[in-house]
Protein backbone atom coordinates (compact mmCIF):
# COMPACT_ATOMS: atom_id res chain seq x y z
CA UNK A 1 0.00 0.00 0.00
CA UNK A 2 2.83 2.42 0.80
CA UNK A 3 4.13 2.05 -2.70
CA UNK A 4 0.76 3.18 -3.97
CA UNK A 5 0.75 6.16 -1.67
CA UNK A 6 4.17 7.23 -2.92
CA UNK A 7 3.06 6.74 -6.50
CA UNK A 8 -0.07 8.76 -5.92
CA UNK A 9 2.08 11.54 -4.54
CA UNK A 10 4.25 11.47 -7.65
CA UNK A 11 1.18 11.65 -9.86
CA UNK A 12 0.22 14.79 -7.99
CA UNK A 13 3.24 16.62 -9.38
CA UNK A 14 2.02 16.98 -12.98
CA UNK A 15 -1.48 17.68 -11.66
CA UNK A 16 -0.17 20.48 -9.50
CA UNK A 17 1.92 21.77 -12.39
CA UNK A 18 -1.11 22.15 -14.64
CA UNK A 19 -3.03 23.71 -11.79
CA UNK A 20 -0.25 26.20 -11.14
CA UNK A 21 -0.13 27.24 -14.78
CA UNK A 22 -3.88 27.85 -14.87
CA UNK A 23 -3.84 29.78 -11.63
CA UNK A 24 -0.95 31.93 -12.69
CA UNK A 25 -2.47 32.87 -16.03
CA UNK A 26 -5.83 33.63 -14.48
CA UNK A 27 -4.31 35.71 -11.74
CA UNK A 28 -2.33 37.70 -14.28
CA UNK A 29 -5.42 38.30 -16.37
CA UNK A 30 -7.41 39.76 -13.53
CA UNK A 31 -7.82 43.47 -14.03
CA UNK A 32 -5.44 45.63 -12.04
CA UNK A 33 -2.32 44.78 -10.12
CA UNK A 34 -1.15 45.38 -6.54
CA UNK A 35 -0.38 49.01 -7.30
CA UNK A 36 -3.64 49.92 -8.99
CA UNK A 37 -5.35 50.74 -5.73
CA UNK A 38 -2.45 52.87 -4.58
CA UNK A 39 -2.62 55.34 -7.42
CA UNK A 40 -3.96 58.65 -6.24
CA UNK A 41 -3.94 61.88 -8.23
CA UNK A 42 -0.77 62.85 -6.35
CA UNK A 43 1.14 59.70 -7.23
CA UNK A 44 3.86 60.09 -9.77
CA UNK A 45 3.07 57.60 -12.61
CA UNK A 46 6.80 57.21 -13.17
CA UNK A 47 7.24 56.00 -9.61
CA UNK A 48 4.50 53.38 -10.09
CA UNK A 49 6.11 52.21 -13.30
CA UNK A 50 9.43 52.00 -11.52
CA UNK A 51 7.88 49.84 -8.78
CA UNK A 52 6.27 47.58 -11.38
CA UNK A 53 9.59 47.17 -13.12
CA UNK A 54 11.30 46.49 -9.81
CA UNK A 55 8.82 43.78 -8.90
CA UNK A 56 9.18 42.14 -12.29
CA UNK A 57 5.57 42.84 -13.19
CA UNK A 58 6.52 44.03 -16.66
CA UNK A 59 8.40 40.88 -17.64
CA UNK A 60 6.77 38.42 -20.08
CA UNK A 61 4.34 36.16 -18.23
CA UNK A 62 6.37 33.01 -18.75
CA UNK A 63 9.40 34.58 -17.14
CA UNK A 64 7.30 35.61 -14.19
CA UNK A 65 5.85 32.14 -14.06
CA UNK A 66 9.23 30.42 -14.17
CA UNK A 67 10.48 32.67 -11.39
CA UNK A 68 7.39 31.90 -9.34
CA UNK A 69 7.60 28.14 -9.77
CA UNK A 70 11.32 28.17 -9.05
CA UNK A 71 10.70 29.97 -5.78
CA UNK A 72 7.67 27.89 -4.94
CA UNK A 73 9.86 24.79 -4.99
CA UNK A 74 11.83 26.32 -2.18
CA UNK A 75 8.65 26.99 -0.26
CA UNK A 76 9.04 30.62 -1.19
CA UNK A 77 5.98 32.34 -2.57
CA UNK A 78 7.35 35.85 -2.51
CA UNK A 79 6.17 38.68 -0.34
CA UNK A 80 2.66 39.78 0.34
CA UNK A 81 2.20 43.22 -1.19
CA UNK A 82 -0.36 44.12 1.43
CA UNK A 83 1.11 42.70 4.60
CA UNK A 84 4.75 43.21 3.64
CA UNK A 85 5.72 39.83 5.03
CA UNK A 86 6.70 36.59 3.37
CA UNK A 87 3.71 34.74 1.96
CA UNK A 88 4.93 31.53 3.57
CA UNK A 89 5.02 33.14 7.00
CA UNK A 90 1.65 34.76 6.48
CA UNK A 91 -0.06 31.55 5.36
CA UNK A 92 1.77 29.49 7.94
CA UNK A 93 0.26 31.40 10.84
CA UNK A 94 -3.21 31.35 9.36
CA UNK A 95 -2.91 27.71 8.37
CA UNK A 96 -2.25 26.66 11.95
CA UNK A 97 -5.33 28.57 13.12
CA UNK A 98 -7.43 26.97 10.41
CA UNK A 99 -5.97 23.56 11.11
CA UNK A 100 -7.02 23.62 14.75
CA UNK A 101 -10.39 25.08 13.92
CA UNK A 102 -10.96 22.36 11.33
CA UNK A 103 -9.99 19.67 13.75
CA UNK A 104 -12.41 20.90 16.38
CA UNK A 105 -15.11 21.33 13.74
CA UNK A 106 -14.58 17.78 12.48
CA UNK A 107 -14.78 16.37 16.00
CA UNK A 108 -18.00 18.26 16.72
CA UNK A 109 -19.40 17.42 13.29
CA UNK A 110 -19.05 13.67 13.72
CA UNK A 111 -19.95 13.74 17.39
CA UNK A 112 -23.29 15.33 16.50
CA UNK A 113 -24.03 13.76 13.14
CA UNK A 114 -23.13 10.12 13.67
CA UNK A 115 -25.35 9.41 16.70
CA UNK A 116 -28.25 11.41 15.27
CA UNK A 117 -28.07 9.76 11.85
CA UNK A 118 -27.63 6.26 13.18
CA UNK A 119 -30.42 6.54 15.75
CA UNK A 120 -32.81 8.19 13.31
CA UNK A 121 -32.18 5.29 10.94
CA UNK A 122 -32.63 2.71 13.63
CA UNK A 123 -35.84 4.24 14.93
CA UNK A 124 -37.08 5.13 11.49
CA UNK A 125 -40.44 6.95 11.50
CA UNK A 126 -40.40 7.37 15.27
CA UNK A 127 -40.78 10.74 16.95
CA UNK A 128 -37.05 10.92 17.41
CA UNK A 129 -36.57 10.35 13.69
CA UNK A 130 -39.07 13.03 12.83
CA UNK A 131 -37.28 15.42 15.16
CA UNK A 132 -34.00 14.72 13.42
CA UNK A 133 -35.56 15.25 10.02
CA UNK A 134 -36.99 18.55 11.19
CA UNK A 135 -33.59 19.57 12.55
CA UNK A 136 -32.05 18.67 9.18
CA UNK A 137 -34.55 20.75 7.29
CA UNK A 138 -33.94 23.75 9.47
CA UNK A 139 -30.19 23.59 9.45
CA UNK A 140 -30.22 22.95 5.71
CA UNK A 141 -32.46 25.91 4.99
CA UNK A 142 -30.67 28.35 7.22
CA UNK A 143 -27.86 30.29 5.50
CA UNK A 144 -24.43 30.12 7.11
CA UNK A 145 -24.24 33.76 7.99
CA UNK A 146 -27.69 33.80 9.58
CA UNK A 147 -26.87 30.93 11.91
CA UNK A 148 -23.45 32.42 12.63
CA UNK A 149 -24.98 35.77 13.47
CA UNK A 150 -27.69 34.26 15.65
CA UNK A 151 -25.18 32.25 17.66
CA UNK A 152 -22.83 35.20 17.82
CA UNK A 153 -25.64 37.41 19.07
CA UNK A 154 -26.89 35.05 21.78
CA UNK A 155 -23.78 33.33 23.04
CA UNK A 156 -21.28 36.02 22.27
CA UNK A 157 -23.10 39.29 22.78
CA UNK A 158 -26.16 38.62 24.98
CA UNK A 159 -24.90 35.88 27.26
CA UNK A 160 -21.24 36.75 26.76
CA UNK A 161 -20.27 33.10 27.14
CA UNK A 162 -17.86 33.15 24.25
CA UNK A 163 -15.56 35.72 22.63
CA UNK A 164 -16.82 37.15 19.37
CA UNK A 165 -13.60 37.85 17.49
CA UNK A 166 -10.05 36.67 17.06
CA UNK A 167 -8.29 33.39 17.70
CA UNK A 168 -6.71 34.07 21.08
CA UNK A 169 -6.77 36.55 23.93
CA UNK A 170 -3.88 38.96 23.28
CA UNK A 171 -3.14 39.23 27.00
CA UNK A 172 -2.17 35.58 27.24
CA UNK A 173 1.51 34.74 26.96
CA UNK A 174 2.15 32.46 23.98
CA UNK A 175 3.05 28.98 25.15
CA UNK A 176 1.33 29.20 28.51
CA UNK A 177 -1.54 26.91 29.40
CA UNK A 178 -3.90 29.87 29.48
CA UNK A 179 -2.89 30.67 25.92
CA UNK A 180 -3.99 27.30 24.63
CA UNK A 181 -7.17 27.33 26.66
CA UNK A 182 -7.93 30.74 25.24
CA UNK A 183 -7.33 29.40 21.74
CA UNK A 184 -9.78 26.57 22.21
CA UNK A 185 -12.23 28.94 23.84
CA UNK A 186 -12.12 31.19 20.76
CA UNK A 187 -12.70 28.26 18.44
CA UNK A 188 -15.79 26.81 20.07
CA UNK A 189 -18.41 29.09 18.59
CA UNK A 190 -17.12 29.15 15.00
CA UNK A 191 -16.43 25.42 15.09
CA UNK A 192 -19.89 24.67 16.43
CA UNK A 193 -21.51 26.84 13.77
CA UNK A 194 -19.79 25.18 10.87
CA UNK A 195 -20.22 21.74 12.43
CA UNK A 196 -23.98 22.22 12.71
CA UNK A 197 -24.16 23.30 9.11
CA UNK A 198 -22.17 20.28 7.99
CA UNK A 199 -24.23 17.73 9.91
CA UNK A 200 -27.20 17.66 7.53
CA UNK A 201 -25.48 15.76 4.76
CA UNK A 202 -23.96 13.18 7.10
CA UNK A 203 -27.15 12.69 9.11
CA UNK A 204 -29.32 12.18 6.06
CA UNK A 205 -26.78 9.91 4.44
CA UNK A 206 -26.38 7.74 7.50
CA UNK A 207 -30.08 7.61 8.19
CA UNK A 208 -30.85 6.26 4.72
CA UNK A 209 -27.91 3.89 4.87
CA UNK A 210 -29.16 2.41 8.13
CA UNK A 211 -32.73 2.12 6.87
CA UNK A 212 -31.49 0.40 3.71
CA UNK A 213 -29.11 -1.86 5.57
CA UNK A 214 -31.96 -3.22 7.70
CA UNK A 215 -33.37 -5.07 4.73
CA UNK A 216 -30.02 -6.38 3.52
CA UNK A 217 -29.54 -10.10 3.17
CA UNK A 218 -26.61 -10.23 5.56
CA UNK A 219 -28.76 -8.65 8.25
CA UNK A 220 -31.36 -11.32 7.67
CA UNK A 221 -28.59 -13.91 8.03
CA UNK A 222 -27.54 -12.37 11.33
CA UNK A 223 -31.14 -12.49 12.57
CA UNK A 224 -31.43 -16.09 11.37
CA UNK A 225 -28.45 -16.92 13.59
CA UNK A 226 -30.42 -15.64 16.55
CA UNK A 227 -28.20 -12.61 17.14
CA UNK A 228 -29.98 -10.18 19.52
CA UNK A 229 -31.36 -7.04 17.88
CA UNK A 230 -28.87 -4.69 19.57
CA UNK A 231 -25.96 -6.72 18.32
CA UNK A 232 -27.44 -6.94 14.86
CA UNK A 233 -27.33 -3.15 14.82
CA UNK A 234 -23.92 -2.65 16.34
CA UNK A 235 -22.06 -5.42 14.57
CA UNK A 236 -23.77 -5.53 11.22
CA UNK A 237 -25.94 -2.57 10.34
CA UNK A 238 -23.92 0.32 11.79
CA UNK A 239 -20.57 -0.91 10.60
CA UNK A 240 -21.76 -1.21 7.05
CA UNK A 241 -23.67 2.05 7.13
CA UNK A 242 -20.69 4.02 8.38
CA UNK A 243 -18.58 2.89 5.47
CA UNK A 244 -19.55 5.58 2.96
CA UNK A 245 -19.30 8.24 5.64
CA UNK A 246 -15.83 7.06 6.54
CA UNK A 247 -14.91 7.17 2.89
CA UNK A 248 -15.84 10.81 2.83
CA UNK A 249 -13.80 11.83 5.87
CA UNK A 250 -10.80 12.66 3.71
CA UNK A 251 -12.75 15.15 1.65
CA UNK A 252 -14.49 16.60 4.66
CA UNK A 253 -11.24 17.25 6.46
CA UNK A 254 -9.47 18.84 3.53
CA UNK A 255 -12.63 20.79 2.80
CA UNK A 256 -12.59 22.18 6.31
CA UNK A 257 -8.88 22.92 6.02
CA UNK A 258 -9.68 25.12 3.06
CA UNK A 259 -11.21 27.27 5.76
CA UNK A 260 -14.75 28.42 5.81
CA UNK A 261 -14.76 31.82 4.25
CA UNK A 262 -18.03 32.87 5.84
CA UNK A 263 -17.34 31.51 9.28
CA UNK A 264 -13.86 32.94 9.52
CA UNK A 265 -14.99 36.30 8.22
CA UNK A 266 -18.01 36.60 10.51
CA UNK A 267 -16.15 35.47 13.60
CA UNK A 268 -13.14 37.55 12.54
CA UNK A 269 -11.10 34.42 12.96
CA UNK A 270 -7.68 34.85 11.34
CA UNK A 271 -7.60 31.70 9.21
CA UNK A 272 -6.96 30.90 5.58
CA UNK A 273 -10.49 31.54 4.38
CA UNK A 274 -10.42 35.04 5.75
CA UNK A 275 -6.98 35.62 4.28
CA UNK A 276 -8.18 34.43 0.90
CA UNK A 277 -11.03 36.91 0.80
CA UNK A 278 -8.92 39.84 1.90
CA UNK A 279 -6.14 39.05 -0.55
CA UNK A 280 -8.58 38.87 -3.42
CA UNK A 281 -9.93 42.25 -2.42
CA UNK A 282 -6.44 43.74 -2.37
CA UNK A 283 -5.21 41.85 -5.47
CA UNK A 284 -2.44 40.35 -3.44
CA UNK A 285 -1.40 37.96 -6.24
CA UNK A 286 1.38 36.21 -4.47
CA UNK A 287 -0.95 35.29 -1.61
CA UNK A 288 -3.86 34.33 -3.89
CA UNK A 289 -1.80 32.06 -6.09
CA UNK A 290 -0.15 30.40 -3.12
CA UNK A 291 -3.52 29.82 -1.45
CA UNK A 292 -5.17 28.41 -4.55
CA UNK A 293 -2.20 26.11 -5.01
CA UNK A 294 -2.60 25.00 -1.43
CA UNK A 295 -6.32 24.38 -1.90
CA UNK A 296 -5.62 22.34 -5.01
CA UNK A 297 -3.05 20.33 -3.13
CA UNK A 298 -5.50 19.78 -0.28
CA UNK A 299 -8.17 18.56 -2.69
CA UNK A 300 -5.77 16.01 -4.18
CA UNK A 301 -4.67 15.02 -0.72
CA UNK A 302 -8.31 14.61 0.30
CA UNK A 303 -9.01 12.11 -2.43
CA UNK A 304 -5.86 10.18 -1.57
CA UNK A 305 -6.77 10.23 2.11
CA UNK A 306 -10.25 8.95 1.30
CA UNK A 307 -8.82 6.11 -0.75
CA UNK A 308 -6.48 5.15 2.04
CA UNK A 309 -9.23 5.25 4.68
CA UNK A 310 -11.49 3.24 2.40
CA UNK A 311 -8.90 0.54 1.89
CA UNK A 312 -8.48 0.28 5.64
CA UNK A 313 -12.16 0.04 6.55
CA UNK A 314 -13.45 -1.97 3.60
CA UNK A 315 -11.74 -5.31 3.02
CA UNK A 316 -13.15 -5.47 -0.51
CA UNK A 317 -11.06 -2.50 -1.51
CA UNK A 318 -7.35 -2.87 -1.74
CA UNK A 319 -5.49 -0.10 -3.44
CA UNK A 320 -2.78 -1.57 -5.54
Amino acid sequence: MWKTVVRRFLIMIPQLFVLSLLIFIMAKNMPGDPFTGKITPETDPARIEELRELNGLNDPWYEQYARWVGNAFQGEFGNSYTYKVKVSTLIGERAMNTFWLSLLTAVMLYAIAVPLGVLAGRFHNSWFDRGVVLYSFISYAIPTFVLALILLYFFGYKLQWFPTTGSVDVREVPGSAGYYISKIYHMILPAFTSAVLGTVAIIQYLRTEVVDAKSMDYVRTARAKGVPANKVYSKHIFRNSLLPVAAFIGFTITGLLGGSIFIETIFAYPGMGQLFISSIASRDYSVITALVMLYGFLALLGSLLSDIIMSIVDPRIRIE
Partner: peptide, 21 residues
Amino acid sequence: VRGIDIGMIFQDPLSALNPLM
Protein backbone atom coordinates in the same frame (compact mmCIF):
# COMPACT_ATOMS: atom_id res chain seq x y z
CA VAL B 1 -35.33 -20.57 18.34
CA ARG B 2 -33.43 -19.10 15.42
CA GLY B 3 -29.99 -20.49 14.95
CA ILE B 4 -30.35 -23.12 17.70
CA ASP B 5 -33.46 -25.07 16.75
CA ILE B 6 -33.96 -23.83 13.23
CA GLY B 7 -31.19 -22.89 10.85
CA MET B 8 -31.68 -21.18 7.54
CA ILE B 9 -29.83 -21.28 4.24
CA PHE B 10 -30.39 -18.50 1.75
CA GLN B 11 -30.44 -18.13 -1.97
CA ASP B 12 -27.71 -15.62 -2.70
CA PRO B 13 -24.58 -16.59 -0.80
CA LEU B 14 -22.76 -13.36 -1.57
CA SER B 15 -25.27 -10.89 -0.25
CA ALA B 16 -26.15 -13.19 2.64
CA LEU B 17 -22.71 -12.74 4.17
CA ASN B 18 -21.57 -9.55 5.83
CA PRO B 19 -18.90 -8.11 3.52
CA LEU B 20 -16.95 -6.55 6.38
CA MET B 21 -16.67 -9.57 8.62
